[in-house]
């Protein structure tokens, strides 16, 4: 904004700015999503490890309690089945959040490469035919256009 010709002087709230303030006021703030994702990823790993330990412990105890079917059932339920459930939930969390991170990096990388490729192609075209935004001279008198200009 130039100070010589201000339509709306600096420091004055327009309707849009007032709306912006209202929307920011009504925001429900929570922590950064990146931190939450990291925590859930770590939780997934912990659940997988704990689940695996529980499942192995349950299986060993089931083997050792050969004469006591009631205790075998208890170890199967509390050890093996709970452990397997932990492994499944932990694995799902791990895949979900590590995949999200991977795909995010892949998207950024892909955008960056596409831009670099487009710049390279444009540079090659300009090198061969002259700048793309140079004035175009069409052939009007039978004399061909200069080689560095697009037809």
């Amino acid at each position: 904004m130039t100070n010589e010709d201000p339509t709306i002087p600096a420091g004055v709230d327009t309707a849009r700015v007032a709306q912006f303030r209202d929307e920011i006021d009504s925001l429900k703030l929570k922590g950064g999503s990146a931190e939450g994702e990291k925590r859930l990823l770590a939780l997934g790993v912990v659940l997988m490890v704990v689940g695996l330990v529980l499942a192995i412990y349950g299986a060993i105890e089931v083997g050792l309690q050969g004469d006591f079917p009631a205790q075998q059932r208890a170890y199967t339920a509390q050890g093996s089945l709970l452990g397997i459930a932990f492994v499944i939930v932990g694995g799902a969390l791990f895949v979900r959040y590590s995949l999200a991170r991977y795909l995010r990096f892949w998207l950024i990388r892909s955008s960056y490469e596409e831009r670099a490729n487009a710049d390279r192609i444009v540079a090659a075209i300009e090198h061969a035919a002259g700048p793309l935004d140079a004035p175009v001279q069409r052939e009007i008198t039978g004399v061909p256009a200069a080689p560095n200009q697009l037809p």
Binding site: Q19, F20, R21, E23, I24, D25, L27, G32
Partner: peptide
Amino acid sequence: EPTSGQLMVAGRDVTGISPDELARRG
């Protein structure tokens, strides 16, 4: 996210807010 200090938007401390929340609001 800053390691310390505050990001204030429209008079409110929004440090740690996600960028898409801010972008959606203007």
